[in-house]
């Protein structure tokens, strides 16, 4: 693990050394350290990789993903054209899409190969996969959702956990990109959790009670208050997926920024700070390996929590005056 991390850092360092190079050559774009860091984290049409190009071995070979998929013109401008461009929705894959696909392929490879070798007495890779599955099931799903309903939501929760974990970890490989450090990716996952949460809530209490629950428990006699309560409750619905979106995205961005900033110090101050920079970056890198797991865990755990709350919310005290139907449900549930 440490050896691979060092190799990673060596790559990062070389990459870092390379990046300011266009500055010397008078390259076309913004060459500040901040721009370089941003360039490493944000999405783009181009994937850089070490290989054979520009007439020799190079660290900065480029593959233009957009061009490969037949798109031309600057993304987001009216000149943008291609087979996958549908008006405002540009489906041309980007760097993060490719990275997400690679991470997903790796996920499939690992999990499916491991699952093929499953046995009653677990061994090897399957043991590890099963450990994570059992963890999500026994530590996240069952305590938050309940033993009865946990297995219904388990496929989603497991997929979310493993998807986030693999995309996070894949992003730590040099030259790859972290798709979870892109708000467009995390919002999709958060929307899935949101939809499942609402589905669970509607299924558990019925559509009438669900809509009634949006009044925040204010009785019919006080209906003018609904004009205040309904927006608040609706806003409340959306804060949860918003928090999920931002938490995952911000954590992944922050980790990469810290590593890049520490390495950037070498170029910003002096090459003599390199030992300290590399040591700190190594420490942060290790932390990032841990954070990859933690963020997958937190996303899954919060999803479980929201689903569990959705399933149980009709039993809350504040909703007891909703009428007979709701009350019956509450009694049935307890």
């Amino acid at each position: 693990m440490i050896a691979s991390t060092l190799v990673t850092l060596a790559f990062s360092l070389t990459l870092g050394q390379h990046q300011p190079a266009p500055d010397a050559h008078g390259g076309g774009h913004d060459e500040s350290l901040g721009a370089v860091m941003m360039h490493h984290v944000v999405d783009g049409d181009v994937i850089e990789f070490p290989g054979y190009c520009h007439g020799g071995l190079a660290w900065n070979c480029e593959w233009n993903v957009a061009a490969a998929f037949g798109a031309a013109g600057e993304r987001g401008t009216p000149e943008r054209a291609g087979p996958l461009v549908f008006g405002a929705v540009d489906l041309t894959p980007t760097k993060h899409v490719i990275m997400m696909w690679l991470a997903s392929a790796l996920l499939l490879l690992v999990v499916l190969t491991a699952t093929r070798k499953r046995s009653l007495v677990p061994r090897g890779a399957y043991n590890f996969v099963e450990l994570l599955v059992a963890f999500v099931r026994n530590e996240l799903a069952v305590p938050n959702i309940g033993k009865k309903d946990a297995d219904r939501f388990l496929p989603y929760l497991l997929t979310a956990f493993f998807f986030i974990l693999f995309v996070n970890l894949f992003g730590l490989i040099p030259y790859s990109g972290t798709a979870t450090a892109n708000v467009n990716v995390t919002v999709c996952l958060a929307v899935f959790t949101f939809l499942i949460t609402q589905y669970a809530a509607i299924k558990a209490m019925g559509i009438g009670a669900y809509l009634g629950h949006l009044t925040g428990g204010v009785p019919k006699s006080l209906w003018p208050l609904w004009f205040v309560m309904v927006p608040v409750e609706v806003l409340g619905l959306f804060t949860k997926p918003f928090a999920l979106t931002v938490r995952l995205f911000a954590n992944m961005v922050a980790g990469h920024f810290v590593i890049l900033a520490l390495l950037g110090l070498i170029f910003a101050i002096s090459v003599w700070v390199a030992p300290a920079s590399v040591a700190l970056a190594l420490a942060i890198f290790m932390l990032e390996l841990f954070v990859a797991f933690v963020q997958a865990y937190i996303f899954t755990m919060l999803s479980c929590l929201f689903i569990g709350a959705g399933l149980a919310s009709h039993g809350h005290d504040e909703h007891e005056e909703h009428g007979a139907a709701s009350g019956d449900h509450a009694e049935a549930h307890h």
Binding site: L108, A179, C188
Partner: peptide
Amino acid sequence: GSLTTINPGLTLWTAITFLLL
């Protein structure tokens, strides 16, 4: 290339990839 660039294509690809997975 801001951090908050909105790219519905990416979101859609995420959804497709995730659902396939």
